[in-house]
Amino acid sequence: MPVLSKPLNFWAKNKPSLLLVGLVAISWGCGPTNEKLPILGQREAVTKMVNGKSVTDSVYQSIPDFRFVSQYGDTVTARTLDNKIYVADFFFTSCPTICPKMKVQLKRVYEKFKDKPDVMLLSHTIDPDHDSVSVLKEFADNLGVTGRQWLFVTGDREKIYDIAQDSYLVTAQSDPSAPGGAVHSGAFILVDKAKHIRGIYDGTTEAGVDQLMKDIDRLLAEYKS
């Protein structure tokens, strides 16, 4: 099970709904490894007619479309991640606190799944004024990242903040009093091929990322079966 080394408000700070916090907490629950990972976030009951009968299904929260720019200068949208399991996170290149730890840990994920075309990584900068395309490319190069399996993206600041808090259920916001002028979650978010969140992990610890990698393998096995 993922190790919870931070309080829940570290991951879901400023989320108005207690339901969301409760659902995020599921990602730290224990259970048999052969069970499917839970789907996190809000869900809505939708009733429709099927063969003349009323059927109610659950529609789960999913990552909406977005439009950012990668370290290669091209446009990245939700369609770029179609048919991919991916890990999302939020950072900035000049971050003096948790970002270096996060990138060391995410590099472990990158190295483990480099031969798995179904797996991608998506890192969003929360400091687009500084983190230009060229800055992100240099940052990726210094990490030893090549190809398009790990994309570093920039874009409109408010859209980045909005998708972090409204869609990925984590914190990203300006804070002049914080080191570097911004605060963000240290979480890694696991997203499946249907754009559903399947787990949230402490990206600053080896134990949290060990569990993330195990759960990526579980998702890969789920799709194979």
Score class of each variant (00 low, 15 high):
L190T: 00
G31P: 13
I63T: 01
E111L: 06
S5N: 06
D202V: 02
K107G: 05
G147T: 02
L143A: 14
K159P: 09
E206M: 05
V135C: 12
A45I: 14
Y86R: 09
N142C: 02
L169H: 12
N51A: 15
K193I: 02
E111R: 05
K159N: 13
F66M: 01
W150Y: 00
F90D: 00
Q61F: 14
T56A: 08
R198W: 14
E206T: 14
T154K: 12
I63E: 01
H130M: 02
S123D: 03
N142G: 10
S27L: 03
D129W: 06
G73D: 12
K36W: 12
S185V: 08
D175P: 00
L40A: 03
N34D: 15
T33Q: 09
G180Q: 04
F91A: 08
G199H: 01
D115C: 06
S5W: 02
P7C: 12
K103E: 13
T146E: 13
N83P: 14
L106V: 02
K13R: 13
R218K: 14
T47Y: 13
V69T: 13
M102S: 05
P7L: 09
A207N: 03
E35T: 11
R148W: 04
K13H: 12
V3W: 03
G22Q: 01
V87G: 03
I39T: 14
N51K: 13
I200N: 01
E111T: 09
C30Q: 11
T97A: 10
T75E: 12
V119S: 08
F152P: 04
I85F: 06
D217L: 12
E111C: 00
D57N: 11
D202F: 01
F188W: 04
V191G: 11
S134M: 11
S94F: 01
D65Q: 08
Q42N: 08
F10I: 07
Y60M: 09
A12H: 10
R108N: 04
K114C: 04
D175C: 02
L81F: 11
V135R: 11
L220V: 09
F68D: 10
Q165S: 15
V21N: 07
L23A: 12
Y60A: 03
N34V: 11
R67Q: 13
Q71V: 10
P100Y: 02
G208M: 01
M120T: 00
I126K: 03
I39N: 15
V59Y: 10
L220I: 11
M102P: 08
G186M: 05
R218L: 06
D156Q: 12
H184T: 07
L169W: 07
K114G: 05
L18H: 07
K114E: 07
G199N: 05
K101C: 03
G73K: 04
S134D: 13
E44W: 14
T154A: 08
E44L: 09
G155D: 07
G52A: 14
Q61Y: 13
I39Y: 15
V87I: 08
Q165L: 14
D156V: 09
C99N: 00
Q42H: 09
H184A: 03
Y86N: 11
D175Q: 04
W150F: 00
S185P: 14
Q173C: 05
E222P: 10
S185N: 07
K6P: 00
G22N: 11
L18Y: 09
T33Y: 09
Q105T: 07
